[in-house]
Design a protein around this nucleic acid. Structure first.
Lengths: 125, 125, 125, 125
DNA sequence: GTGGTCTAGACCACT
DNA sequence: GTGGTCTAGACCACG
């Protein structure tokens, strides 16, 4: 798993981290049940504060994506919290479609772009 | 146009405002070319500060959604900036699909929810 | 002389007026010594307030471009206030060159654009 | 970098700030990639409000001249947005030449003043 | 320590 | 009556 942090970005470092870890999981670079790099090691590698890594990991535990064990953090085996996920996805969909209709982009374009994105993530759509 | 602000939300008030105004435009409650409520009037109605409304309106001017005239703010007649919009939409799509695959939601579910959302916005999909 | 006012512009109407009148003088559409349309007539034609026309005309009198006579406003015959004009031009030149060097535009481009603009104004450069 | 604000000027403080910062970048007093003084520090030094500095900095971010990071604002490394810059420069050139022809200043004078300004900015023309 | 958000309230420019 | 500018000061998020 390759993680890159842009220091000169207004996006909080912990948010950049979460996004990249999620993407790595989806692309299979991080497998279900696999351990994540330890907080200290990752902090050292990326040159960021330990607290920042910790915050990212703990937020992902709250989201149900990571599990905290005695030996460190690992990717959960299966999905969970279906209602919250559904809520969140529906909100993202609404936001997306509002922009689509606001700028009068055709649904064909959107469908095409969704296909493209799916294949970039090496997934079926 | 009905606008409701949740003061307790972590989402900034000006962002909530932008989202609701965009939604109102898409639903046709705010017509192209129509004037928006004045910053001070809307601030009074919503019980927020004038500067907060101002920030929201000006961000929408930057996005090309509103126009600023001597008499106030109004909804632009037409769409614009196709490349920037495309960028932004593709990013939103990637974010959405990452969550979808992360939580192993089927694409059928997503397609269904997109249909639902479209009809809530009184639009064709 | 054709004057057009954009109501949905953040630029004050009196400023738009001044700019267009100056351009008309330079292009020879308004001759030195010629009378301008009366305040009332122009206000009626453009559908703007009489005070607004008045303000524009009076600012141009202050600039030494128009003269106020008993019969109305007219374009002055000759140039004047050389020191103030020099000041103002040097300031505009500095502003221009700062943008040029900031964005690393070549002076050849600028010279070319100045030639183009001159010929659009039907002038020698 | 020396910045001076004229409180009595009709030019808004944030505009004066933007002009002076641009000038400092062109003169090399502010280097590409360098951090700017923090909004609160600069506000304190100049005796103006934090929000005024903030507005200036954010407008320069919109112009692509500054970058906003988690640690503060910094000067972008390279140029960008060529079309918008071209638009803006052509407009400035037209404004300049209208004044030139209006006051019948010779193009030799203008060329000379442009040379002078260039050398004041320690640049080649 | 950085910037971000929000409030309350003042004075000014434009029409 | 519209928005624009500016101030003073508070509380929060990030690292």
């Amino acid at each position: 798993m390759l993680i890159e942090i842009e220091a000169s970005s207004p996006v909080p470092i912990y948010t950049q981290l979460i996004n990249q870890i999620k993407k790595a999981i989806v692309k299979g670079e991080l497998k279900r049940g696999e351990m994540l790099p330890s907080v200290r090691v990752l902090a050292g590698d990326l040159g960021v504060n330990m607290h920042t890594i910790n915050k990212a990991y703990n937020l992902m535990v709250d989201e149900g994506i990571l599990l905290k064990s005695q030996r460190g953090y690992l990717v959960t085996e299966s999905k969970q919290r279906p209602e919250e996920v559904e809520e969140q996805l529906k909100e993202k969909i609404e936001e997306l479609l509002i922009e689509v209709y606001l700028h009068e982009v055709s649904s064909e374009h959107i469908k095409e772009w969704m296909q493209d994105t799916a294949s970039q993530l090496e997934k079926e759509w």
